[in-house]
Amino acid sequence: MNASPLIDIQQITYTYPLQNKGKSKAQSPKALQNVSLQIQPGEYLAVLGHNGSGKSTLARHCNALLIPDSGRVLVKGLDTSNKADQRAIRDCVGMIFQNPDNQIIATVVEDDVAWALAVRGLPVNLIAERVEQAMNAVSISHLRKLPPHHLSGGQKQRLAIAGVLALRPQCIIADEATSQLDPLSRREITALLHQLNQDLGLTIIHVTHLLEEAALAQRVVIMEQGRIVMEGTPSTIFTDIERLRQLKLAIPEPIELVSRLRAAGLTLSREALTVDAIVREIVR
């Protein structure tokens, strides 16, 4: 069907190495068990699961931060276990992390956007041009001279996205990037990722434990105990509320309302997943 996926995860298994001797000698459980997943260029994928389900571990395999124990991950056909290809892979797949602070390296906003480009030894004028575009794309140009500790959590995550965008990647992974933000910033960052997918055709992998953030995705994958247990479009996934609850996911009240109304005999479209869509559906 699809000629070549951007990221091709083939039957990977991964176990975290034991960190200290003090822990029990028993082998720590497998973080990933025989996971296969293909991500197409331009796709918006949401990876859902509760804390400890393996979703972050999976995400970290996509830009060679982790190398599978068995199986392999190909990014644009390059094997992540091949050290020589890792920089090319990270140029193509950028990542933003959970803690907004611990990924910002430079002391001023614009320097941080430029940092990854400087590390790669690009010429100064090219850096300046790309930094400008990246800052505009996430609307933080007005903050350029500020030190990071003067930014809000949401602004820090925008900065992190700009730092990745400046590298002109094909894919951005947001690894729980919204979980430490307030609800409004959370929505803004989700909307920004959606917009980058729509406007620039970027592949987005949005790792989250919040169902409402997955509503705009094209495809949803749900993980539990290191395995993919559900996969499909948001509209099919969101109908099985009982199953979602079993997977320790919080059901947003509007979604629950729709489901209960449907159970009570109302006909409501399965596509009604966001507040706006639900309103439209009910008013109709």
């Binding site: 830009n63 920089r87 950028g94 992390f97 611990n102 990924q103 990854a116 790669r120 990745v164």
Partner: peptide
């Protein structure tokens, strides 16, 4: 965390 971020940013 920073070590991971540094690695991820190349």
């Amino acid at each position: 965390d920073l070590a991971t971020a540094l690695e991820s940013r190349g």
